[in-house]
Every structure is written in structure tokens, then in C-alpha cells.
Amino acid sequence: MLRRRPPRSASADDLLTTLGRLTAQAREGAELQQARVELAEALQREMLPGALPELPGLRTAATYAPARHGLAIGGDWYDGFRLPDGSLAFSVGDVQGHDVEAAAFMGQIRIGLRAVAAHAADPGEVLSRANDLLLSVDCELFATCTFVRFDPFRWELTSARAGHVPAIWATVDDRYGVTDDPGGIPLGILPGERYPVTRRRLTEEGAFVLLTDGVVEGPAFPIEAGLAQVTRLVSARAGDHPADVADAVMCVAELTGHTDDAAVIVLRFEAAAAAAGAG
């Protein structure tokens, strides 16, 4: 004799209906999140420069890596461009927050920095003007940034920091260190902020590395340890091609288990050009 299952109660049918609706909503939410991630990745690819400027005696390279799990993309950037007086400008930074909004705000900052750099006297003034410009658009996000200007006539780097992680430098004669320059608060927080400027004459062959905290900091990896790791690496490879140095520095991000995106710029300056500029 076949036994029939008792009919499901109305409450069981309701439960299955609710479960199906929640599953569909979860699927739609996951698809929406994936679409936002893909859009942020596309924005990031389009907004980052395809190449950095160079001059005789100064070679450059940069690299970018998205967040390990792909959900925190959009905040970090690097840039490089020529200024009207013949010098070169470089910037690296990190927008607070992630996803499409951070990627879009990153684009605003890059454009703002380029616009004010053509009319500002030094990196400190560039950051001050960019800070006030960003505050004028009334956005709730803020960003850390380092802005560097390379003077090919004096063979000199001038730089200013807005709440950003320090740079790393090394020369081929085994001198190296972490820049301990004074700086100001991140961009987009307080109007009228001023940013101190640091000057460096490039009298020896070597490398100057700008990076974001996604390279040197992770969930269980303190930023001090990451900076020390990068410093050792750059000191050992100060004479290498800048692209090789950039790739090696980015490998540190894999050690940290980074949950943020990461960016690196390497400025590689030659001894002969440095000596000529210092003369």
C-alpha cells in the first residue's frame, strides 16, 4: 500500500515562498555588488595613466594591484605629468572608502591636482589649492596624497604630504631610509590647510619610491614592518630597472595579505645626470 504524504501546511508553503524570495534578493544583491566592482575596476583602469613621463637620466615606472578579494577597489591612484616649466610632477594617493564612489572621487582629485599644479609654485601650494578645491565640491570623502615635483635643471625633488605614508629612498652606495618629512592632514577635511615642502638634491644614483598603505599594511601586518620590508628591498635593488623595482615592491603587498588596493611609483635617477644637475 502506498502512503501519501500529508499535505503541507499553509505555514510551510509560506516559508518556502519567503525562502525563494530571499534567495532571489541575495542573488540580485550579489550580482549588483559584482557589477559595482566591475564598474570600479573599469573606472580605475581608465583613470590611471598608461605611462609616466621620463627625462634623460630619470626613468620611471608604476604598478597598481586591486584588493585581494576585489571588494575594496577604487581608492588608490598614481599619476605623472609634465609641467609648463619643463619639470615633472608625480602624485600617489588613497581615497577614504572604496567602490565606485571612491574611484570617481579619485578621478576628481587627479584632475584637480593637474589643474592647480600648472599654476602653483611648489608641491605644498598644489596640495593646499587642491584641498580647497575638493572642499568646494562638498563631497563627504577625503584622501591622503603625496605630491612630488622633479626639477631637471637643479636635479632636485620637492615634495609635500597630506596624511600619506612616507616614501622610501635608496642610493647605489648603500644609503637608504624612510622619509620622515613633516606633512599636513588629508585632503578634503579642513579649508585653508598648509603643507610643508621638503627638498632633496639628487647627487647620487638611486631610487625614490612612492606607495600607498595597501602595499605595506595588512590585517596582521603592521605598517612599520611593511615599510621596513620595502626599505630593505629598495636598498638591495636601487640600481635595477624601475619596472623591476616596482614589481618587487608590489610583492610586499602579497606578504601583508592586503585587503586594500595598492599603488607604487618608482623614480630611478642616474649618477651622471645627477652630478650634472648638482654642478
Rank of each mutant, 00 (worst) to 15 (best):
G112E: 13
P186C: 08
G192N: 10
A72G: 00
G70T: 08
I185M: 11
G184M: 02
S159W: 15
A72N: 03
A170F: 14
L190G: 01
G75M: 01
D138L: 14
D138T: 06
W155K: 03
A143N: 10
L157F: 10
D94V: 02
L127D: 05
G183P: 13
V137Q: 06
V100L: 05
A207T: 14
R201D: 03
A103P: 01
C139F: 12
P152T: 13
G206T: 02
G70A: 04
G124V: 12
R199H: 11
G75W: 06
D132E: 11
F142D: 03
G183H: 08
G124W: 10
G93L: 02
N131Q: 08
V148G: 07
E204N: 05
T144E: 13
G183M: 10
A207Q: 08
A130T: 12
R110D: 07
Y176T: 08
A89C: 09
W155V: 07
I185C: 04
I168G: 02
V95M: 00
G206N: 01
D174E: 15
G192S: 06
G124A: 08
A89K: 03
D132L: 11
D99S: 13
G124S: 07
E125Q: 09
D180Q: 13
T158Y: 10
T146V: 14
L134G: 03
A170T: 00
A117I: 07
A102C: 11
H98W: 05
W155S: 10
Y78P: 00
D85F: 13
C139T: 11
L134V: 07
F90S: 00
I189A: 07
A72H: 02
A117V: 04
L190E: 04
D85S: 11
L133P: 08
D180S: 13
